[in-house]
Amino acid sequence: MDRRSFLTLAVASAVVPLASGAQAASVAYKPGLVTEKLKAGETVFLDFKASWCTTCKAQERAIQALKAENPAYDQAITFIDVDWDTYGKSDLAKSLKIPRRSTLVVLKGDKELGRIVADTSKGSIKALMDKALTAASA
């Protein structure tokens, strides 16, 4: 394969998933966002993470793989990324008693439906995402 063909193929493979609307991006947390989404009746999946955290990166890979396998996750669940370095000591983190980065929490209404702390197994993350999907569909 010549260089021009390779570059064309590389660019096309990067653009096609975007054009097909593959995965909605997670929303970056800002104060008041979670309350707003919950009051609107949405099911919220919080991902407390840090850019330097290897456990967080492993969780993110599992989440993205699961979203790719089942587009219903992105359609029904509001995914919110909470930057640990900025909001680790925030009112949100305190109210939910978040112990550390690499914590995933699902909320609906005024209830916590589940959480995972520092677990990177795809099966555990899938179970939490399925719980969120069930709640969103109810």
Rank of each mutant, 00 (worst) to 15 (best):
L7Y: 11
L7I: 07
T8H: 07
T8C: 11
T8P: 07
L9V: 04
A10I: 00
A10H: 02
V11A: 10
V11M: 03
V11C: 04
A12S: 07
A12Q: 01
A12R: 04
S13I: 02
A14H: 02
A14W: 10
A14R: 02
A14T: 00
V15Q: 04
V15N: 06
V16N: 07
P17H: 11
P17C: 12
P17Y: 11
A19P: 03
A19C: 14
A19D: 08
A19L: 15
A19W: 15
A19V: 15
S20C: 15
S20W: 12
G21H: 01
A22M: 12
A22L: 15
A22R: 08
A22T: 05
Q23P: 11
Q23R: 08
Q23I: 14
A24S: 12
A24T: 04
A25K: 12
A25Q: 13
A25R: 11
S26H: 10
V27N: 01
V27I: 15
V27T: 13
A28D: 04
A28R: 06
A28Y: 07
Y29N: 09
Y29D: 08
K30M: 09
K30A: 14
G32E: 00
G32M: 05
G32P: 10
V34F: 13
V34P: 15
V34W: 10
E36T: 02
E36F: 06
E36G: 14
K37P: 09
K37I: 08
K37L: 15
K37Q: 12
K37C: 05
L38N: 07
L38Q: 06
K39R: 06
K39L: 06
K39N: 06
A40I: 03
A40M: 03
A40W: 01
G41E: 06
G41K: 08
G41Y: 02
E42C: 07
E42V: 04
E42P: 08
T43P: 14
T43W: 13
T43A: 11
V44D: 06
F45R: 01
L46E: 00
L46H: 00
D47Y: 14
D47W: 13
F48R: 02
F48V: 06
K49P: 01
K49S: 04
K49M: 05
K49D: 00
A50Q: 12
W52A: 05
W52V: 03
C53D: 02
C53R: 04
C53V: 08
C53G: 07
T54D: 09
T55L: 13
T55G: 05
T55R: 05
C56G: 11
C56D: 06
C56N: 10
C56Q: 08
C56S: 12
K57C: 03
A58Y: 10
Q59S: 06
Q59N: 07
Q59Y: 05
Q59H: 11
E60H: 13
E60G: 13
E60K: 14
E60Q: 12
E60N: 13
R61Q: 15
R61H: 13
R61N: 14
